[in-house]
Each structure stands twice: as C-alpha cells, then as structure tokens.
C-alpha cells in the first residue's frame, strides 16, 4: 500500500513542480495546492499505513492507527490553508495593481518599476 501511495505522491509533486514553473500566477497557486497535498499525504504514508481502527480510545481495540502524523497533518493543513488564502488575495490585489498575471511581465529592477 505504501508503494502505491509513494507513486501517487510522486505524481502530485511532479504536477506541482510543472505547474509552479509555468507563467500564469493562478497555475502557480494551484501548483502550491498540489504540493501541500503531496506533503500531507507523505506525512500520512511515512507514519505507516498500519493500524486497523481510528485513533479513538474504544473498549476492546488494541490496533490503532498512529495518531501523531494525523495531528501533524491537521496542523500543516491549517497553516497551508492560511498561507494559500493570503496568497490568493495577494494575487488578486496584484492583478488589480499590476494588470497582469504573467510572471514574465512581473520583472523589474531598481531603475524602472
């Protein structure tokens, strides 16, 4: 099972890198979304996919899933949600101000802004 997950995560990373290298700002943000999906799935996979029941204490259950990676993922999800929301608003603002979403046109040196 871990092998399958590794291939899926690898594919997510590949797609994320491809999207983040493109010109359009929105594609880049979609790429960061895929990248964080990949990272979160990777924590889950690297914690081990064993354990037959959810990590909630219940009578008669001995084989739980590892609770620590789930807590880490929950934290990382919230953080990346906050950053993505900020990033989207920033992209919106800069589309209004700079009137482009093409990263190649967002160059500038100190001589001409």
């Amino acid at each position: 099972m871990e092998i399958v997950m590794c291939f899926v995560i690898g594919f997510l990373f590949m797609a994320a890198v491809y999207l983040m290298l493109s010109k359009s700002l929105l594609r880049i943000i979609i790429g960061t979304g895929l990248l964080s999906h990949g990272a979160h799935l990777l924590i889950l996979t690297m914690g081990g996919l064993g354990g037959s029941s959810p990590p909630v204490v219940a009578p008669g259950v001995t084989d739980y899933a590892d609770p620590l990676p789930q807590a880490l993922i929950l934290t990382a999800i919230v953080i990346s949600f906050g950053v993505t929301a900020f990033f989207l608003v920033l992209a919106y603002r800069s589309y209004q101000e700079l009137e482009t979403d093409n990263m190649n046109l967002m160059r500038g040196t100190e001589d001409h802004d």
Binding site: T32, S36, A39, H40, L42, I79, S80, V83
Partner: peptide
Amino acid sequence: VISSALFV
C-alpha cells in the same frame, strides 16, 4: 511556500 512544504 515551497521551502515550508519541503520542511514538512
């Protein structure tokens, strides 16, 4: 964002 994902 990229380096944070790498950190995770």
